[in-house]
Write a protein that binds this DNA or RNA. Structure first.
Ligand SMILES: [Zn+2]
Ligand SMILES: [Zn+2]
Ligand SMILES: [Zn+2]
Ligand SMILES: [Zn+2]
Lengths: 133, 133
DNA sequence: ATGCACCCTGAAGTCACTATAGGGTCAAGC
DNA sequence: GCTTGACCCTATAGTGACTTCAGGGTGCAT
C-alpha cells in the first residue's frame, strides 16, 4: 500500500507518517520505481500501535519504549505497567490543575456583573491591585 | 528595578521577561549606562497581569487581547467575558478527554495480571489485533 | 496535452518558553 | 589591583509533535 492508503487506514496524516519514519518509530519501507513508499502489513500494524498509544496520550518517547517492550512477547510486562501507571499519575496532575483553573475562572465569570472593564471581576482578578486577595 | 528583581517580584524568569519584550507583550524599558534594562512600576503591574493570565491558562494571544481590553476601563467587559467563557469551554473539553483517557488506562491497568507481554492487557489494548474491541 | 490527485524532499513554522555560547558590568574581599 | 561571583547583554538553537510550505515528479483519465 502507498502512504496515502496507510494514512487513511490508520487515521494518520501522510506528513505524520513521514515524520515517524524520520524519527525512527516506523521503519523505512521499500520504494517502487517512482520512488514511492510501499508499505506492508507489518507497517500497518506498527503504525496502528503508535496511533493508539498516542491517542491514549503517551509521548513519543513512551511509545518508543512500549514498542520495544511489546516486541518481545516473553518479557515481563512490568515495564509496560510502570509506564502506564506513571502516565496515569501525570494525567491526574493535569486533571487537578485544570479543575482548579476551571473553578477559579467560573467563579469569576459568575460574579462578573459588568458592564465596564472598570467593574469586571475577571480583569480585577488579573490586575495586580487585587494581589492581596 | 533591574530585570532580576522584576523576575523575583513576579515569579517570572529573566529569559521569559526578555521573551515577552521581544513578543511585544511588555514594552521595552529604559536602559542605564551599562545597557541594563531599568523597569518602572508600570512594568511590574503589566507583567503581573500577564503572569496571572498565564497561570490561569490563557494563551499569549488571549493575554494580548485581555491587555488590550483592560487598557480602557470605560469599555464594556463583554469581550473579556467571552474570552474567558471560551477558555472555560476549552478546559472542559480537555477535562473530558483526560478523564476518558484515564478511565481507559486504569481499566487496563487493573485488569492486567501479567506476567508476560503476551498476556499484558495494556499491550493488548494497543495492538491492532484488538482493534475489533 | 491537460488536469488532477497523489507522491517526493528539505526547510521552516507552531507555542511558550528554555538553554547555550560568548561576552560585558559591578561590588566585595584578598 | 585583581579575582571571584552574581548579575546583565545579544543572538541563536532546542523542546515536542507535529504542520505547512516551496518546488518539484508520477500516474491516470479526459
Ligand atoms: Zn525511554
Ligand atoms: Zn466582566
Ligand atoms: Zn486575538
Ligand atoms: Zn501488563
Amino acid at each position: 500500500m502507498k502512504i496515502g492508503e496507510l494514512g487513511r487506514a490508520t487515521g494518520t496524516s501522510v506528513e505524520t507518517i513521514r515524520f515517524y519514519e524520520a524519527e525512527g518509530l516506523l521503519s523505512a519501507p521499500a520504494r517502487n520505481a517512482a520512488n514511492y513508499r510501499v508499505y506492508e502489513l507489518a507497517h500497518l500494524e506498527r503504525l496502528s500501535f503508535i496511533k493508539r498509544s498516542r491517542d491514549l496520550g503517551f509521548t513519543l518517547d513512551q511509545v518508543r519504549e512500549l514498542l520495544r517492550l511489546a516486541d518481545d512477547p516473553g518479557n515481563s510486562c512490568a515495564g509496560v505497567d510502570v509506564i502506564t501507571a506513571r502516565h496515569v499519575a501525570e494525567i491526574d496532575r493535569k486533571l487537578a490543575d485544570l479543575n482548579a483553573l476551571r473553578g477559579e475562572l467560573v467563579r469569576r465569570l459568575d460574579s462578573c456583573q459588568g458592564p465596564t472593564i472598570a467593574d469586571c471581576r475577571i480583569i480585577e482578578a488579573l490586575s495586580p491591585k487585587s494581589a492581596a486577595e
